[in-house]
Design a protein around this nucleic acid. Structure first.
Length: 374
DNA sequence: AAAGCGGGGTC
DNA sequence: GACCCAGCTTT
């Protein structure tokens, strides 16, 4: 039983006309829009997961310049890959994308399959991304339902169902599917074999409207909306009541001590584990909890390290979606080069060019540059 | 169904 | 502060 009745579905049947007309004249200029390969569509869609268009622009241009084809991606070493993704977050996205690229090279002759179901089997490609690639790159008439689409459609229909429920998302996918403009001259029985020259544009028109007009955070710009007169939430004067979502669980706080160990123009880095938070990225030596100067000196001595000088750095905070790091920092000059388990001494120039550090440590990597420059 | 997974913009 | 973002994977 769907949250949408037949009458609601029928009332949206021809909404593609004003949406496409609006999209044709008002869409933003975006690097991956226009005549682009399925590979470029794929790269952009992975980058856009939980990430705004404005944040993606520069990353997309740099990434596709370095790795212009799917084969380049499949053959890239992981260190370079993570450096290209540095600062964009959700780093498993790029590792999964490379896994998928290797599969595409081996099983599909180097081109992404022209099938929603086959796309869905690739690592890192879920229902949204499979629908986006299939419709935007190949004009296959399948929906792609993201946060924008659910926000727009929940307002248009004034529907209060909780969009965090997977059953509700399914109903939005069915509704979005029914809205895709179909070429009536084709009469193939299988929907996905039928032609829909504007399936990709239509899906993008819904997302573009959500991103630029039917916005989250505060009041939407209903006065410039092309489907204002057909929006139930606008007509009731309460678009900001939609969509309805249940609250997220609270973040937990973790205290850490960040220690920048230096010797000459080298700094000690450690590689994070291959799974979990910030998997595969590099970081400074660190310990759980806040250590004062004496405790740090003792901790270093236990590692067989004797500090020449210990400088206290400012406290710093970084907020992830589910964790908050509260960090106390130190910069330590060593008397002689000592190795710590699992660590690697890296020259500053090498660090800047080749080692991916999480943005969570940005305050301390800046401190490092400040101490070294003069 | 819920939790883990980044980082930044906006109000 | 809280909320959200062209979501996916694991538990």
């Amino acid at each position: 039983m769907s949250i949408f009745d037949d009458k609601t579905t029928y009332s949206l049947a021809r909404l593609h006309e004003p949406l496409l007309a609006w999209y044709d004249t008002c869409k933003r200029e975006i690097p991956w829009r226009g005549a682009s390969s399925s590979y470029f569509v794929w790269v952009s869609e992975i980058m856009l997961q939980q990430t705004r268009v404005e944040a993606v622009r520069a990353y997309f241009l740099r990434f596709t310049a370095a790795l212009p084809t799917l084969q380049h991606l499949a053959e890239c070493d992981e260190q370079t890959l993570l450096k290209l993704w540095e600062g964009l977050g959700y780093y498993n996205r790029v590792r999964n994308m490379q896994k998928a690229a290797k599969i595409v090279m081996e099983q599909y002759g180097g081109e992404l399959p022209r099938s929603y179901e086959l796309l869905l089997t690739l690592p890192g490609i879920g229902e949204y991304t499979a629908g986006a690639i299939a419709s935007i790159a190949y004009n296959i008439p399948v929906p792609c339902v993201d946060g924008n689409v659910m926000r727009v459609l929940s307002r248009v229909t004034a529907n209060s169902a909780d969009i965090t429920l997977s059953s509700v998302k399914k109903d939005y996918q069915v509704l979005a599917q029914s809205m895709i403009p179909m070429d009536d001259s084709s009469n193939s029985p299988a929907l996905q074999d039928r032609s829909s020259p504007r399936a990709g544009d239509f899906n993008q028109s819904l997302m573009e409207l959500g991103a630029t007009v039917c916005v989250p955070n505060g009041a939407p710009l209903c006065d410039v909306c092309p489907i204002q007169t057909q929006c139930k939430a606008f007509l009731s004067g309460n678009p900001q009541h939609y969509p309805v979502k249940t609250a997220k669980t609270a973040r937990k706080i973790e205290k850490k001590t960040i220690v920048i160990l230096m010797y000459g123009d080298q700094v000690l880095l450690q590689k994070r584990p291959n799974s979990g938070l910030l998997a595969g990225l590099w970081e400074f030596w660190s310990m759980d909890g806040w250590l004062n100067r004496d405790e740090l000196t003792n901790a270093l001595m236990e590692q067989g390290i004797f500090a020449n000088a210990i400088h206290s750095l400012k406290k710093a905070k970084h907020i992830f979606s589910h964790i908050e790091w509260q960090m106390q920092g130190y910069l330590v000059y060593l008397e002689k080069l000592s190795t710590i388990g699992g660590g690697e001494w890296v020259k500053l120039t090498d660090l800047r060019e080749n080692y991916a550090l999480p943005s969570a440590l940005k305050a301390y990597s800046k401190e490092l540059e400040r101490w070294v420059l003069p």
